[in-house]
Design a protein around this nucleic acid. Structure first.
Lengths: 195, 195
DNA sequence: GCACGAACTTGTCAAATGACAAGCAGATGT
DNA sequence: ACATCTGCTTGTCATTTGACAAGTTCGTGC
């Protein structure tokens, strides 16, 4: 049991330092859930009720544009929280889907449980706060990079920061994440490899 | 004094209900600051140290794209918090500027003060948490609308939700906020007025 | 009242991007 | 080993969008 939640425990500790007893009691609340490749973790229109820690695997969030094209909004790699926070905290239907790109192993806690524990354990509240700030930061950085950088620059950055995504996600998903079509990405890759 | 901070007080209460004595002690920490039209509230490269409540006036946040074009990222209207939360909480230089579009009256608290008070007053911590969730929500909704809607739809929505922005911001600023150039916005307005 | 300037509109043209379709390559199953 | 399928690349072409410049409108100051 202790060993089983080792990665979750160290993630909690690393996000917000706390006594061993506290982190153990928090980790204890998380239940296991596995997803097979291409499972839906969250479906558009539903309220997100689970707060997942992704221990192993890859996922992506996606939605559809006004022409019906599938657009990737986020990639999730191991060792992070997977949750559509807008739907989760505001209790409104999600406009996004989340699907697993590989088999995944997660630890999760439900919205109701999390609310209860937030009140009882200050350290967990602080952990949640840090997660929220990090999620906000990522989203804002992403928004700014969409404005400030070219698709090619974003491609190179992604390649350097998360090369493993390229092993598990199709290029068409990466393309829409970068804000371009698979055709354009293919051309960028061609130009890029020439140098 | 009590009357002076009336708008701030009701904003605090409306965001997170709390006893009158508590809200008064929190409001008491905020200091006044005024900005003239076209003042910089925050400059790119600096760490955001103030958490402002905008009592009256309009502001916008902007940055520059890879070609040097001025791009509006956010409009701020009265009765909300104005703060570059990424820079503020992560203590990193801001990639955005914030400028006043009209004369503005604000109430603010510094980062250090806020940190101190967060620990002492649970209600203020919850208030801050709600603000953070709201900021995250707005950013995410905006990102999704950039994907899911056409520029024309976004224009109509903005016109309906914040018509006052059109009184105080130039169309070129609104255009970049919508993700298009002033030329394209002009064409959208032309088409739209025809119907 | 007239001249000037700023903000917005609009026409023309060029460039970038995407749609579509064909081709290619690697993986998988029989 | 062969056929098949899927993902990726690439060529051609059409469309969209923006750049640029000229024109218009409106407000301000002389």
């Amino acid at each position: 049991m202790t060993n089983e939640k080792e990665k979750l425990t160290s993630f909690l500790l690393q996000t917000f330092p706390m006594p061993a007893a506290t982190v153990a009691s928090i980790a204890n609340l998380f239940k296991e859930k596995e997803f097979a490749r291409h499972d839906f973790v969250l479906k558009e229109g539903r309220i997100c009720n689970e707060y997942y820690f992704l221990e192993t695997g890859f996922m992506r969030a996606f939605t559809f544009d006004h022409e019906g094209n599938d657009i990737t909004t986020t990639f999730y790699v191991a060792d992070q929280i997977v949750c559509e926070l807008l739907s989760f905290f505001k209790r409104i239907p999600s406009r996004e889907n989340i699907e697993s790109l590989t088999d995944c192993r997660c630890w999760y806690i439900s919205f109701d449980e999390l609310q209860t524990v937030f009140h009882g354990i200050p350290e967990f509240r602080e952990f949640g706060r840090t997660i929220l700030i990090n999620a906000y930061s990522r989203l804002k950085q992403r928004m700014l990079s969409m404005i400030q950088e070219t698709a090619e620059t974003r491609y190179v950055s992604l390649l350097q920061s998360s090369p493993d995504i390229f092993q598990h996600a199709q290029l068409k998903y990466i393309a829409t994440y970068l804000g371009i079509t698979d055709t354009s990405l293919s051309r960028i890759r061609k130009d890029f490899s020439k140098r």
